[in-house]
């Protein structure tokens, strides 16, 4: 089906329910390789690359369409529909925790539970809210991205386009695990770090697990507390690890926490 190809969907494992893993900003579905296989014996394991990342169809990245996270949530729901999945467990990292949240609110029948890995509903500070960052920091991130792409970015036009006549560019993109088209990455960075989905939190009906890292520069402890306070049905688990990617830095603890959350009988 077209949507499965567009998002480079891979399905493995077997079981009555599905675990759908959605990667965050800066990488792609390969981020889950230390965690996802642990569930393949009991679940259908669905991996995907958001449009614009990994091996997704880069030509489908229309900046106007993907100027909000809603469009990515639409894509995730389209994948669930194409695979005819109901009551799935959505595991979203960082910005995709928010994407999962939006998808679960939109179609509760498809998403029974949410695992939010290092989530943040808003990265920027606001009155009475500590997101951790100022607008200037996001500009600094964009500059850093520009500096890192300078060497091989041949995209002269500011428009985002596929370059099928330049296969050497594609070869370069595939050189490293997490590379992507620089113009798309830049756009997605803006959408990610300027998004504010705090108002959506109370609308979630599904139970959610908040997996937070003890020392995470992107999602400080205060953000985890905020989520826990504003989501109607959530558990907060703080993993004893540093960084923003517990599924890479503490995969066993991440797996254990998800398993615990998914046990048929649980205490709220």
């Amino acid at each position: 089906m077209e949507i499965l190809k567009r998002l480079n969907v891979t399905v493995s494992g077997s079981g009555p329910r599905a675990l759908v893993f959605v990667h965050g900003f800066g990488c792609n579905q390969r981020m889950w390789r230390l965690v996802a296989p642990a569930f393949a014996d009991r679940y259908r394991v669905v991996l995907l690359d958001l449009v614009g990342a990994g091996q997704s169809d880069l030509t489908a990245y229309d900046p106007a369409r993907y100027s909000t996270l809603e469009a990515h949530a639409d894509d995730v729901l389209a994948v669930l529909q194409a695979l005819d999945l109901r009551d799935a467990v959505l595991v979203g990292h960082s910005v995709s925790a928010t994407i999962g949240l939006l998808a679960a609110i939109r179609e509760p029948a498809r998403v029974a539970r949410l695992v939010l890995v290092a989530p943040s509903p808003r990265f920027l500070n606001d009155v009475g809210y500590t997101g951790g960052f100022e607008p200037a920091d996001i500009e600094d991130l964009l500059d850093t991205m520009d500096n890192n792409y300078l060497g091989w970015s041949a995209v002269m036009a500011p428009v985002i386009m596929a370059q099928p006549d330049r296969p050497e560019l594609m070869a370069e993109l595939h050189n490293s695990f997490c590379s992507t088209d620089p113009a798309i990455a830049r756009h997605f960075a803006r959408v990610t770090f300027l998004a504010d989905n705090r108002a959506d939190l109370p609308r979630l009906r599904a139970p959610a697990l908040i997996l937070q890292c003890a020392h995470d520069a992107l999602a400080p402890r205060a953000v985890g507390d905020y989520l826990h306070a504003h989501l109607p049905d959530s558990q907060l688990v703080v993993l004893d690890t540093s960084g923003h990617c517990p599924h890479l830095s503490a995969p066993q603890a991440t797996i254990a926490a998800i398993n615990h959350f998914l046990k048929p009988v649980r205490t709220a």
């Binding site: 850093t144 997490c178 923003h244």
Partner: peptide, 15 residues
């Protein structure tokens, strides 16, 4: 720098 830290944590550290 803060932007560099964002980049490091989302790109370098996972890589």
């Amino acid at each position: 720098t803060v932007g560099g830290r964002l980049h490091y944590e989302t790109h370098c550290a996972p890589l």
